[in-house]
Design a binder for these strands. Structure first.
Length: 604
RNA sequence: GCGCCGUUGGUCCAGUGGUAGGACAUUAGCUUCCCAAGCUAAUAGCCCGGGUUCGAUUCCCGGACGGCGCACCA
């Protein structure tokens, strides 16, 4: 029997998991034969399987159960995509490094602090350098003069060239989301132009991090599972009743600020001990009613995801939802909560839940030639008065020459925003800073009643964005445990059967007297039934159980001498180490029931 | 990017200016009919590049990688 489960001390926990991961093949630094490269990891046989199972579980919930569609878009996208999304602008951070104390600072922020300039980020680098010299700016840490210290760019995007030459720059996507947003014009057709609909993607994202850290936590290439749920902000409501009773552990912004005197920007690194007692534990319903979570949609996903984390094996006592502080919000986000897991005493973000409003679709609508809107029909067509112009080009052409087309566009633009400007004999429009007078008659201004059957709207986006690698790492860490079985310590992973890399180990008690041959037959049967099976005939039976315990295999089947007599085998359960004897013919059904939780080992 | 510390079989460690040893793991054999047993044997290592030296895994410099701190983290 197993007894005395012991939690690993926090300061040993991550070392232990790293050691296990390398030794048993969950994950390890990539390209080690060539010295390794920071921020890249290879998932070994156990890890790749665990990761895939977690992804499949995510798909089952967020695609199959929730009824959304999944796509697979390219990793490389052309430059204009990221000009539109804001990632290029927002990410050419200007860094200046103090020559005296080696501290790094955002050069644009130093300039903004010292001057009245508000958007120094948009200034060219030579200009920022000139401003630093002009204002004699000093290092905020040590006071060293920064004049003539070069300002350098940090771009966190991986750049590449599409095709030969450099004329067509591309970037590896920093989030899978853009691959969904960019295809919205196609995707909306597949959704038959009906809101709401959700598009999911599980794929690779890339960020050229300055300093990769902490195993799978901060890496340069990682897997995201993202859902972009497109909604009509005026009419669509989430099915809150489905998750209303789910209990959440919430760490709202005001609690974070109260805790450390307003300097809570580093709250994601706050250790668990300082945070006790400041969490709010309440149901989704209560959180919405008391407005702890501002967005019903975000609240819905917090509830939905909470049970999923539990399902894939996170320890819910080491889990919380933390609201972003206002200064922490991304450029696109209106409100954002992170799911965080506690690892080795630190809290790590594993999912971001953001209400992105219409930010992304509007940006792509403006920058591209496609429509990133949907047509929403009114219940009843409406009669509305509309002011229009139909400029007479045969007059404008001779009068304005090359500017004529621009003048006509300006007139059309004006009539939309200010039809009253056409009340007089003439109307004035500005083209390239030059004012032009046009006869109202030439513009052919008119007001007419038209029938509008609907309007174009830009959907809002609710985005749960899961970091799969971090979740794999968190699940491994939370699953790791040690206990004592028959006086011998063992290490095990209490992974849920759904995500465990191997579902069943098959062993001959000894590899002789035909037991091995019989065990091979059992193995083949189980593989045929679709189970992930490991066969092991090396070492004594206890050693083989321990091997499987250590990688989280939930069940082991042993062929012994009784099997040769009556065609039964023992089934041994990982967590309890209890055994039951089962007819070989019933093994697939029994294992399926055990995995689904509809049968317990004690009932066999 | 900066600073401090580190890097020795698959894993975890010891050690040395004269090319290294243990534990565990792995493989083979013996033994054992259900929880890391025992015996025998085998496989397998000094991060990379330069320097000092007759000789460098060891000392020095640089780099890569890792841990922590600073900065960064859309």
């Amino acid at each position: 029997m197993s007894e005395e489960p012991a939690r690993i001390p926090a300061d040993e926990e991550l070392e232990t998991v790293a050691e296990l991961s390398k030794r048993r093949g969950f994950f390890f630094p990539a390209s080690r034969a060539y010295g390794g490269v920071a921020g890249f990891y290879t998932y070994g046989p156990e890890g790749a399987s665990l990761k895939r199972n977690i992804e499949d579980s995510w798909r089952d919930l967020f695609v199959t159960q929730e009824g959304h569609m999944e796509i697979s878009a390219p990793d490389v996208m052309p430059e204009p995509v990221f000009e539109a999304s804001g990632h290029l602008d927002g990410f050419d951070d200007m860094i200046i490094e103090c020559p005296a104390c080696d501290s790094s600072h955002r050069a644009d922020h130093l300039v903004e602090d010292a001057t009245r300039i508000e958007e120094a980020e948009s200034l060219p680098i030579p200009e920022v350098e000139a401003l630093i010299a002009e204002y004699d700016l000093d290092c905020p840490v040590c006071g060293e003069a920064l004049t003539d210290v070069p300002v350098e760019e940090f771009n966190l995007m991986f750049e590449t060239n599409i095709g030969p030459g450099t004329s067509s720059p591309g970037y590896l996507r920093p989030e899978t989301a853009q691959g969904i947003f960019v295809e919205f014009p196609q995707l909306k057709q597949y959704a038959r132009n009906q809101l709401p609909f959700g598009v999911a993607q599980v794929g690779t994202a890339w960020r050229n991090e300055i300093s990769p850290r902490r195993a799978l936590v901060r890496v340069r290439e990682f897997t995201q599972a993202e859902l972009e749920h497109f909604i009509d902000p005026e009419t669509d409501e989430p099915p809150l009743e489905r998750v209303a009773d789910v209990e959440l552990t919430l760490y709202p912004a005001d609690e974070q600020e109260a805790e450390d005197g307003g300097e809570a920007s580093d709250a994601s690194r706050t250790s668990s001990d300082g945070s006790d007692g400041t969490y709010l534990t309440m149901t989704v319903r209560e959180a919405v009613e008391e407005n702890v979570i501002a967005s019903d949609w975000v609240a819905y996903y917090l509830g939905l995801a909470r049970d999923w984390y539990d399902r894939v094996g996170l320890d819910m006592d080491r889990f919380r939802y933390r609201q972003h502080l206002s200064g922490e919000l991304a450029h696109y986000a209106a409100d954002c909560w992170d799911a965080e897991a506690e690892l080795g005493g630190d809290w790590v973000e594993i999912t971001g839940f953001a209400y992105r409003s219409d930010y992304d679709l509007s940006k792509h609508g403006t920058h591209s030639d496609e429509e990133f809107t949907l047509f929403r029909q009114y219940d009843e067509p409406q009669r509305v008065e509309r002011a229009t112009v139909d400029p007479d080009m045969s007059v404008l052409g001779p009068e304005f020459g090359g500017d004529a087309a621009a003048v006509a566009d300006a007139l059309r633009d004006l009539v939309e925003h200010d039809p009253d400007a056409f009340d007089g004999e003439t109307v004035s429009v500005e083209v390239d800073g030059e004012a032009h007078e046009v006869d109202t008659a030439v513009a052919d201004f008119s007001r007419e009643e038209v029938t509008e059957s609907g309007e174009h709207i830009t959907p809002h986006v609710v985005e749960p964005s899961f970091g799969i690698g971090r979740i794999v790492y968190s699940v491994l860490t939370h699953a790791y445990g040690r206990d004592t079985v028959d006086g011998e310590e063992r290490a095990y992973l209490d992974l849920p059967a759904e995500v465990a890399p191997t579902t069943v180990g098959v062993f001959p008690l000894m590899d002789k007297d035909g037991l091995g041959e019989r065990a091979r037959e059992v193995e083949a049967d189980l593989r045929g039934a679709g189970f992930a099976v490991t066969y092991d005939d090396s070492g004594n039976i206890g050693r083989r159980y321990r091997r499987q315990d250590e990688v989280g295999t939930p069940y082991c089947v042993t062929v012994d001498y009784d099997t040769l007599e009556d065609d039964t085998v023992t089934v041994r359960e990982r967590d309890s180490t209890d055994q039951a004897r089962v007819p070989v013919a019933e093994l697939p059904a029994t294992l399926t029931a055990l995995r689904a939780g509809t049968t317990a080992i004690d009932d066999l």
